[in-house]
């Protein structure tokens, strides 16, 4: 594949495989009352491969359900529709990308990082009075540009990883040095091509470089990404912590004591991610 440039980027992205209809609906459906959610799950059950993966996850011992779950409808009843939403969206996104072994960019720990960021964002969104599903989705997708490069622009990404190793820097700094742009631009364009809601596109685009104007979802993802890296939940492609923008905590109505009080819950909710990734890949 040709070398990726800022100019060729949007054209290249348009040629990538499109997301399945059901996963697109899951990610773009903003009206999420229980009825709408139940309809989404009904739709998901028509994608047999996806439904099979979800039932495998829902029946895993992590959820500790004594009865065997045989349908997505039962899964929604037993697990709660919102937990099921997390599983379905994560399984849909993970399953979209062909699995691969890459020692320099471990896919399993990458998915752990983004699911962790999504869960962290969801928990803090609840405190901040923000939409929790949107927060999870934005966390899940915030680094989608990295995996898109790893899968579809392998050679460019290999040069990025080599630069990262040589200069001991953040992957984003390596991307900027090698390509002249970074995963936030790639991710935002991918999200746009998938027609995702604007707040999600903005959060992907701005989670490392927050604008002066208020962008709550991007701020939430900025913080959640940093917390997950700090707690060593998964691996986003580098083992460094980006600087936290100091105004973010106050803007979200948070402080360190509040954040500290949620760490246990975040880690507990994260225990499902291993099983989810194994079943979904």
């Amino acid at each position: 594949m040709a070398k990726l440039t800022r100019e060729s980027l949007s054209k290249e992205i348009q040629q990538l495989p499109s997301l399945s209809v059901i996963v697109t609906h899951l990610l773009t459906q903003l009206q999420r009352d229980d009825v709408a959610m139940a309809e989404l799950m009904e739709e998901a059950s028509h994608d047999q491969a996806l439904a099979a993966r979800i039932l495998h996850i829902a029946n895993s011992p992590f959820y500790g359900l004594s009865a065997h779950i045989g349908s997505l409808k039962d899964a929604g009843t037993m697990l709660g529709i919102h937990t099921l939403y997390n599983i379905v969206t994560a399984a849909g996104i993970i399953g979209h990308f062909p699995p691969a072994e890459d020692q320099n960019f471990d896919r399993h720990s990458f998915w752990q990082h983004v699911i962790g960021t999504g869960i962290c964002a969801r928990v803090l969104a609840h405190h901040a009075g923000m939409d929790q599903e949107l927060a999870f989705t934005a966390g899940l997708l915030h680094d989608i540009g990295k995996v898109v490069m790893a899968v579809y622009f392998e050679e460019d990404f290999a040069r990025v990883l080599a630069y990262r190793d040589e200069h001991d820097c953040l992957i984003r700094e390596a991307e900027q040095a090698v390509l002249g742009f970074d995963h936030t631009l790639v991710g935002a364009q991918v999200a746009q091509s998938w027609k995702l809601p604007k707040p999600v596109v903005d959060a992907i685009k701005s989670h490392h470089s927050l604008p002066a104007t208020s962008l709550p979802l991007a701020e939430l993802i900025h913080l959640s990404d940093i917390l997950c890296r700090g707690l060593n939940i998964g691996h986003g492609g580098d083992d460094l912590i980006p600087f936290l923008k100091s105004s973010v905590l106050a803007r979200l109505g948070l402080n360190w004591d509040i954040i500290r009080s949620y760490l246990g819950e975040i880690e507990n909710l994260n225990r499902f991610s291993d099983q989810l990734i194994d079943s979904a890949s």
């Binding site: 940093i226 917390l227 700090g230 707690l231 912590i241 600087f243 936290l244 360190w256 954040i259 500290r260 760490l263």
Partner: peptide, 8 residues
């Protein structure tokens, strides 16, 4: 960032 590190 040191404060963040210490809390975590």
């Amino acid at each position: 960032m040191q404060q963040l590190k210490n809390i975590l």
